[in-house]
Amino acid sequence: MNRRRAGRILTAVLIAALAVPLMYGMVQLPAPGHADAPAHTNVSAGYIERGAELGGSENLVTGVLLNFRALDTFGEVLVIFTAWLAVAAVAGTASNAERDPVPPSPVVDYVIRLLGPFIAIFALFVIVNGHVLPGGGFQGGVLLGAMLILLSLVMDAETVARAVSARSWIWLRATGVLVFAMVAVMGLPLAGYLFGLPDEPGLRQVLTVALELGIGIGGGAVLAGLFFAIAGADRS
């Protein structure tokens, strides 16, 4: 107990010692919100000036994610797929999930079952409108995942997990990676560079929505998979 106390005091000293230079350094950064800070005048200015036209998305965040910095987003899709691979490799697979012994109240049960389809439609709306509205593939995917998790709370994880065969689940989870890789390779003939999107607006639109859908479905399936694996992990 004494040792723990000494450790806490030592940590407190360490953190206090860190706090001073951190705070001192941070207040010397350009103040947030000022239009003449480098964060706004350099690359960002270019994005805002011509990003919508060149990137093909009025929502510049989507343009940056899917077009300008597509490789980062590919990495992001891969990280979350890797997380599922990792969880599955460590914990066992979804089929080991066992039902939660405490049934939820009938009201919760009813409300969630009622909400399910609406959440799914909203998720789809968020996914396909990502280029004009806030939102996009991953946000919609999270909503899809959240819907599956909610459903598995009232229906029991195994029923939801088994709604689709184990084999299809894996393919669904990899959708993001596979679609992204395909669009990236198509960039070579269409735009001259890997990860490039074509200049022709119609085709670019189609590929953007394909990317969003891939990321959304893949992300949602992965998040649900993470939940299934964790919910049943210690009994595998």
């Binding site: 690359v43 270019g46 077009n67 300008f68 910095r69 490789l71 735009a191 001259g192 560079y193 490039g196």
Partner: peptide, 10 residues
């Protein structure tokens, strides 16, 4: 990557 100028793309 993607054919963008270095500072705008990657």
């Amino acid at each position: 990557v993607g054919g963008w100028l270095p500072q705008y793309g990657i």
